[in-house]
């Protein structure tokens, strides 16, 4: 099987040097997790007034794991529902729902996640669940929009030829439309996941354990060191995930 240049670039996906950036960010994250608790002197220098320079209520590794879990859950739901909704409304039988779906996705993103949290708590209680709901709604738009664009960009005459050759509708979808739309869909997922990593921090306001915990605690206690620790970890995590996606996407030609 030949590798497909439209999706993977002309290079071998597994060549280690192409993974230098993701590996670098991953290493940075590991080093930070291990080193952070021992940098008390440094953070004390940054914020001399803090009573306790390092956030110790939960180990950073636990916060990171839970943060990732919330984002992974929300992104999986957003990807599956967003991509399938976009596929549905580009089928001949679902075309009537196209405006509805794209409008719902837009509303999802214009609605601030904080407001969604506030509205969701009475229904779903405190913790991870309302955070996931807010992230799903917030992350749907880029996925739906990019899937619609990706499928829409497939040359109609190619689709026509595919039908004319005797491909069934599902063969046209799986062998023509999705492979050609894949880079655009992947770009949408990248945006959605990266934004989701940053946004998940607000879950800490309603009791979800995330890397937002030190930030919220820092705000409440006026402890700049806590805020910095949470922010640095979230930032490096987002850069790591983003570099993985950058690797999966084809280089710009």
């Amino acid at each position: 099987m030949r590798s497909d240049p439209a999706i993977l670039g002309d290079s071998d996906l597994l060549a280690w040097r192409h993974w230098a950036a993701p590996l670098g960010w991953f290493a940075a994250l590991g080093v930070l997790l291990v080193a952070m608790p021992h940098l008390g002197a440094l953070f004390a220098a940054i914020d001399p007034e803090a009573r306790e320079p390092i956030y110790r209520r939960d180990p950073f590794i636990d916060l990171l794991a839970n943060h990732l879990l919330v984002v992974a859950g929300a992104s999986s739901i957003a990807i599956v529902s967003g991509v399938s909704a976009a596929i549905m409304v580009t089928r001949p039988w679902g075309r009537d729902f196209l405006p509805l779906v794209s409008q719902l996705a837009s509303i999802g993103q214009t609605f601030p996640p904080v407001a969604v949290l506030a509205l969701a708590v009475p229904w779903l209680g405190f913790g991870g669940l309302p955070t996931v709901v807010a992230l799903v709604l917030y992350g749907l738009l880029p996925i739906v929009r990019n899937t619609l664009v990706g499928i829409g960009e497939v040359d109609p005459s190619t689709r026509e030829a595919a039908r004319g050759m005797g491909m069934s509708p599902s063969q046209v979808l799986w062998q023509l439309e999705l492979p050609l739309a894949a880079p655009v869909i992947l770009a949408g997922i990248r945006t959605s996941v990266t934004v989701g990593i940053a946004t998940a921090a607000i879950g800490s306001t309603i009791g979800a354990k995330t890397l937002g915990d030190p930030i919220i605690a820092g705000i409440i206690n006026g402890n700049t060191a806590y805020i910095l620790q949470g922010a640095i970890l979230i930032g490096v995590l987002a850069l790591f995930i983003d570099s993985v996606f950058a690797r999966l996407l084809p280089s710009q030609r």
Binding site: D4, T158, A161, G166
Partner: peptide, 17 residues
């Protein structure tokens, strides 16, 4: 039916990938 009829069009409609 279509699989037993050859079909060629102006824009070729070749699969780009």
């Amino acid at each position: 039916l279509r699989r037993r009829i050859g079909y060629a069009i102006q824009s070729t409609g070749l699969f780009p990938h």
